[in-house]
Amino acid sequence: MNLIEGQQWVSERLQGLLVSTGVEAVEAYNRAVYGFLSREISDSNAIIRVRRKIEEEDLRRVRAMILLTEKKNELLICAICSISDNVRSIAECAAEIAESALKATLS
């Protein structure tokens, strides 16, 4: 059973943080691909910094918030951890594409 059908959901605050972190990661990914294809590297270092911010600040806050607010619901904790891992993967992809753009352009 999925979370939506199961009527189990996280707090508005946690959902908001998760979605805003996701939006930031997706925007970084979009800018990274644009930079790679257009060989425009002025934004590349900023994208690499976004990855660090997402990993070290935003997702840490998400994990801390899950443990504080959802400590009795294992299914929900696993689902949110899985989503936050995927958000981290998007940020990682963005940073790797930005690095590739830097390498391709500078070489």
């Binding site: 939506i4 996701g22 979009n30 989503i83």
Partner: peptide
């Protein structure tokens, strides 16, 4: 990109 945006929308709007 559209998959990512729709995923976040589905998460926001359940």
């Amino acid at each position: 990109l559209s998959m990512c945006k729709d995923t976040l929308k589905s998460l926001r709007e359940r």
